[in-house]
Each structure stands twice: as C-alpha cells, then as structure tokens.
Amino acid sequence: MPQYALELCDLSRHFQLKNGVFSAPTTLKAVDGVSLRIPPGETLGLVGESGCGKSTLAKMILGLLPPTDGSVLVNDQVISNGNRFALAKQLQPIFQDPYSSLNPRKTIRQIISLPLQLHKVGDKRSQQASVKQMSDLVGLPERLLDQYPGQLSGGQRQRVAIARALILKPSILVCDEPTSALDVSVQAQILNLLMDLKQELGLTYLFISHNLGVVEHLVDRVAVMYRGKLVEQGTREDIFRNAQHPYTQALLSSVLTPEPSLGLPELLDDSAWANAS
C-alpha cells in the first residue's frame, strides 16, 4: 500500500501571456506552489472560483501539461513521460463536458473498450465481457452500447465517461467538475453513482468543483484554492463549520443552504394568499 495515492510537491504552472508585439510578455501564475497529499481511499474536494487554476492543476496531474516547477507522485511514483502509459492503469480522469469527452464517430462500445485495446488487456471476448460488466456497474442500458454519443443524453454520456475511466481498474479518479455541465436533476444521480463506486471499488478521488454545495456531501477533506494557491485545507467539518481564511468564508457565504428552522417564506403562507385575493 503506497503512503499517498496522490502527492503534489510544490507544483507550479506559469503561462507567458503575449500582450501584442511591442510590450513584454507577462507571466500568469495559473498554479503557484501547490502541495497536496491524498491518502488512499480518501476523497479530497478541491474548490475555488472559476479561473483559479483547478483545471490547470488537473491537467498537470494527468500528464497533459508539463509543470513549470514541482512534481506529481502517483502511488509514490513520480510521473514522467516514461511511465505515463503505465500510470494510465492507476489514474484516470472524468472530464467536465460529456459532450466533448466522447468521440462522436465511435460507438459507445468502442469508446468504453478503447482503454483495454490500447493496453492490450485480454482478448476480444474478454474485452466485450468487461464492457458489458462495466456498463452494468455504471447503470448504462446495454441497448445503448451500439449507439453513437450523439444519441445519448448528458447523464448517459457521463456514465459512459465513468465506465471508460474505470475499465482499466484504476485506483484514483481525477474528476474535474464532473457534473457542472449536467442538468440539476441529473447531477445528483451522477454524484450518487460516483459515491457508490467509491464504496464498491475503494477508489481515491480528487474531486474538483467551483461549487461548495456539491462538494459538501461527498468529500472527506477540502482544499480551497485562490488565484493559483492553496489558501486553506482541512477536514470537511473544519472547513464548513470553522473556516479560517476570509476567502473560504466568502465562498461559504455565497452558497445558499436551505435552513429548515427558518420556515417557508412569507409569500407561500396560505393566509397571505387568502388576504391578497
């Protein structure tokens, strides 16, 4: 058992922004010295407003973007170009937009079995068996397997993306706003599915969201990011009950949580309606 499923050491990514021909380029510190540790089996929520560098961080963890500085360790191994192929079996992403994360020209069956083909796991028959098993697990009806992504709803597509991410049996999932492109009613279904899968398969999640409300019910710990830096980390209770950093407090106060003790708003009161009419 590795000590940490995911460890980020002083990770930074800077972008050079060219402001035209004559002015000198400025540096944007999209991610600036982030250190994080996620033990196996834990769900860490990474929250922060849009543009604070969450996706940039996820891309570096996935090996899609080279860091300017610092390193990423997956199950105690430093990621590099050399072991990226092997690490795909340990770490998989779920992206934000299920409308762009599935190749429109491939059938659902081809999409879910691609990881097995690329990694040469089993023969044709056992691959097809795993596809079926995996689509059962994520609640995807078998009749959809020979359809194209264009014929599926957003929620169904995100289930396909989850099945593809899990078919190599990775231990870690990096979810970059996996529900923010979905209808509100579907969001809860997908979040519940992710939680069930975590229980069943003992997964480690890095769960990225700009919405504290989404994160509240899922995570063990929360890390708050602001302008490329982590400003606060703690258990869910710490952050939601007793936030220290003013940015976290501001973020929390912007989340509308229904308070049962306050009762219904005045207007919905029967007598109010009666008086009005």
Binding site: K59, L62, G63, L64, R84, F85, A88, Q92, P93, F95, Q96, D97, S100, S101, L102, N103, L114, P115, L118, H119, A161, R164
Partner: peptide, 10 residues
Amino acid sequence: EFIASAKVLG
C-alpha cells in the same frame, strides 16, 4: 476532451 482522454490513456 476526447483527445485529452486518449492522451491520458497513453
């Protein structure tokens, strides 16, 4: 993202 996904898969 489907291209990114294929890249992550190696």
